[in-house]
Nucleic acid binder design. Sequence first.
RNA 1: GCCGGGUUGGCUGAGUGGUUUAGGCGUCCGCCUGCAGAGCGGAUCCACGGGGGUUCGAAUCCCUCGCCCGGCUCCA
Length: 479
Amino acid sequence: MEHPVQLYDTMTRQKKPFVPLNPPTVTMYVCGPTVYGDPHIGNLRSFTSGDLIRRWLEYRGYDVKYVLNITDIDDKTIRDSGTAGKTLKEFTEHYTGVFLRGLDMLNNKRAISHPRATAYVPQMIDFIKTLEEKGIAYDAEDGVYFDIDKFPGYGALSGVDVEKVEQTDRVSKDEYDKENAHDFALWKKATPDELERGIYYESPWGPGRPGWHIECSVMTNQLLGETIDIHAGGEDLTFPHHENEVAQSESYTGKQFVRYWIHMRHLMIDGGRMGKSLGNYVSFEDVLEKHSPEAFRYLYLSTQYRRPLNFTWSAMESAENTVHRLANTLDLIENAMKGPDDNLDFEEREATLLKTVKEAKTAFIEAMDDDINTPIALGHLHAISGAINEYVTGPANKGVLGEAARHYMELLNVLGLFEKRSTGGDEVTERLITMITDLRLEQRKEKNYAFADIIRNRLAEAGVEIQDTSEGTTWKLKS
RNA sequence: GCCGGGUUGGCUGAGUGGUUUAGGCGUCCGCCUGCAGAGCGGAUCCACGGGGGUUCGAAUCCCUCGCCCGGCUCCA
């Protein structure tokens, strides 16, 4: 098959044609969240970008096996569940639920698996055992460590020169019982507190729990195989997390671990870093209080995933307006399709519409193929929206309009916009509202505008938006 | 300090040597309209962090300085 998509690969630091190992199958793994709190809007950006890449590859004919893991055991989950007086399981299940609902709201497709680290502990133990047998891992006082001197390629992904860094790292070196400052834990032996709370697993090295990095190596291996096509995550994960994963997995299998490394840029706020301690933290909930999840997804799309995204409330409002406008085109289409069939001809207007739509779609596809350049793609989407809006100001040829609409919706769907849109209600609601707007129309004909406005206001209070047009009155339920 | 990325209009955001430096939002004007909304048409006045350099020509290449982000260190 053809492979038109170009993706930027962190390992080779260049954009290159995306060719999966076994087309049309694509194996894709995204490093998911540690579930110890509400979802972070910067984090959600990374996952939405992952969703977008997946959708685009599917649009391009690939069968994407997409996995997004859940880290449900680590220092923070253990600490905070203790503070909250809950068991680790209760605590992480709660936040896993919150996280998945957040993804749903943002219209991210569910992965084929959202594996939890705690479900793969036996496999992790086996994996570590093998590394130990190969002489790459060693058992120390407080855990089992990976000996990075045994992996010559260490540092290739992140460009970190371990030799250099070590010299400034004396202090932390003394704190641990490991042989080299950059050796990292594969297995952490249980602390007295963890033993008391029952947070541990039996292993050949005594009770304990897996290290963070080993989780991803084992779960990718179990679910997607030894070599995967795409491994993605936030830019902060490049070092040490992903570097360590490469070391573990390639030491274990002797094969290339990942063909394309994709890292998403962080989200900023007002041009700087966002943090709870900086007092400028904006939560997902804060955003949803003022704006639709659709608009939030649009904001994510408005910047290419590899560029910094600056969150501001004015950008958020802008996104809201834009989304409203794009959705309005769907309303205009719907209304025009309901209208009279008084145009059955194919003339210049029709030719122009289809030509514009076709050209814009081609350009949209080119932009997306070029490392998922969403800002450019959105520009072409607007060209289609505008062309349709203009066309329906006149009598519509329903065949031609339907064709244009089909392309428009296809592109909206691939971006994950308006898939769950519903403007209507059930049949009774629909007939009632139509009856009310018909009665109001009578009042308007009598020039009884005050009464007509009261009806309009009361409908708005009930969540029904109406618009008067030359063809009559149209309505839709507010989302 | 070291390594990597960034710095474009009121906001957002394309564009890596040469016709007008996209698109969106906002704002303004007009059309339509009982009003509102939506839509259509038009407008938005020297916008490329500072300073040097290369070139016939630079937002784009080179040098330098500033600021921002990520990593090196718990922080997504």
